[in-house]
């Protein structure tokens, strides 16, 4: 009985420590919001609407911010009471202990998602980006063969560096990050070829060096290459949702096949 109690106590202690940090962050954010909100017009006409204090766009945010400040303060006080302020300067408490595999795995997934959404999707064909993303995730979590990981990291670094290199050499104006998708068809073609090459290398290393069972490899390849192809097909042709990069190589090929060859 007392063992369970101690365990519970332990996890609550941990939570209070985290709460202390969360409350600090929340307080900072709330204060920033407050500063921004105070710049809003409080009275005076705007957009053709006569304004009084009660029409001000700042009214609702001000109410919210004050409640948010109050509740964060409450959380902070609760945390302080439970002595949650210990270890606040320990970086491990903030980004996780890299000695534990669970934290390394978390960061791996997060980084793959970031690469997928912010770097690959805006510049390459959707099928290729997806295949690349799926290969990375399945290599690590389905096969768990560390021999495959090194080539994977290498190809991904090359792909990312290459994409930026291509942008720098083919575009008049280099950009690191854009709110819009690339529409330069030459750049898309080159980026696609690069990514396709990297995917091919990864598939090769998989076929040559993985010691997994044959059936596992078949499943993996089907998941990484076939499923995204089906998804792209269903979304473009049946649901009529154009892919993010509409002039990507695989999309163009499928369109040519579907419309011009099969005449659908």
């Amino acid at each position: 009985m007392s063992g369970i109690f101690l365990e519970e106590q332990e996890s609550t202690n941990k939570l209070r420590k985290a709460d202390f940090k969360a409350a600090l962050v929340l307080l900072c954010i709330a204060i920033l919001i407050l500063l921004e909100t105070l710049k809003f017009p409080m009275t005076g006409s705007y957009g053709g609407v006569e304004s009084q204090w009660y029409v001000s766009p700042a009214l609702f945010p001000l109410i919210l911010v004050s409640v948010l400040l109050a509740s964060s303060a409450l959380l902070l006080i609760t945390a302080i009471k439970a002595r949650g302020y210990r270890d606040v300067f320990n970086y491990k408490g903030w980004i996780g202990d890299f000695g534990q595999s669970i934290n390394r795995d978390r960061w791996f997934v997060i980084i793959q998602l970031l690469l997928y959404i912010y770097i690959f999707i805006p510049s390459c064909d959707f099928f290729l980006c997806t295949a690349n993303f799926l290969l990375a995730i399945t290599f690590r979590f389905y096969l768990s063969n560390s021999a495959l990981m090194l080539p994977l990291y290498a190809t991904q670094t090359i792909a990312v560096a290459g994409l930026f290199g291509l942008r720098a050499s083919l575009l008049d104006e280099f950009y690191f990050f854009s709110m819009e998708i690339v529409s330069d068809e030459k750049l898309i073609a080159w980026s696609d070829s690069l990514l396709a090459g990297m995917i091919a290398i990864n598939c090769l290393t998989l076929l040559l060096f993985s010691k997994a069972e044959k059936i596992k490899i078949v499943y993996l390849l089907a998941t990484c290459l076939l499923v995204p192809l089906i998804l792209v097909f269903v979304f473009t042709f049946l649901l009529q949702v154009p892919m993010p990069v509409e002039y990507g190589s695989v999309s163009l090929f499928l369109q040519w096949l579907w419309y011009d060859k099969l005449g659908m």
């Binding site: 073609a189 696609d192 070829s193 396709a196 190589s249 695989v250 163009l252 090929f253 369109q255 040519w256 011009d260």
Partner: peptide, 9 residues
């Protein structure tokens, strides 16, 4: 695949 798609339009 890459080659065809580049000349298909």
């Amino acid at each position: 695949l890459v080659a065809i798609s580049q000349t298909s339009h």
